[in-house]
Computed example of a mutant assay.
Amino acid sequence: MDVEVDYPRLYWLSFAVAGLVTLLRAVVMGLSQVTLQTLVLLVVGMVVLGTAVRGLKDPAASGAPTEPTPLLVVAVLAATVYSLFTLATIL
């Protein structure tokens, strides 16, 4: 069984999810009290999500890894672990 993986799309998709989770965390934190940490999370989430969406529009020309390199593996795993643990703390 030969599975074809679109590595640039996987790379940017993992960052898009991390950006969305960061925005969600900022919104949940902002419901109780707006602090500097909330504002920083909001800005970071918007920048990460915006960059990922721009990369997803043209993944082949975005500069994302096109094969399973260590950078791709580490970036996708880090974004996935961050997203899962952040969602776990929100819920």
Rank of each mutant, 00 (worst) to 15 (best):
V43H: 07
T22Y: 04
A61N: 13
A64M: 09
L49F: 10
S32F: 00
V21C: 08
M29A: 08
G55C: 13
V40L: 08
L36C: 02
A64Y: 09
V47C: 09
G63T: 07
G55T: 13
L42W: 08
A26I: 11
V28I: 15
G50N: 09
P59T: 03
P70I: 08
D58K: 00
A64C: 09
E67N: 06
V34Y: 02
D58W: 02
V48K: 06
L49H: 14
T51W: 14
V74I: 13
A60C: 08
L49S: 08
G50Q: 13
V21N: 08
V76G: 06
Q33K: 03
T66R: 11
T69A: 02
S32C: 01
Q33P: 01
L56W: 05
L39H: 02
M46T: 08
P68A: 11
Q37L: 13
L20Q: 05
G50V: 10
A52K: 14
E67K: 15
A64N: 09
S62C: 06
A64L: 09
V34S: 02
G63N: 01
L77H: 07
L39G: 01
T69C: 05
G63H: 03
G30D: 00
E67I: 03
L23T: 02
E67L: 14
R54S: 14
R54N: 13
V74D: 11
L72A: 07
R54G: 08
L39D: 03
A61D: 14
V74Q: 07
T22N: 04
D58P: 10
V27P: 06
L39M: 08
L36Q: 05
V44P: 12
V43R: 04
L39S: 07
V53P: 11
S32G: 12
M46D: 10
E67M: 08
V48A: 14
V48D: 09
P68K: 15
V47S: 09
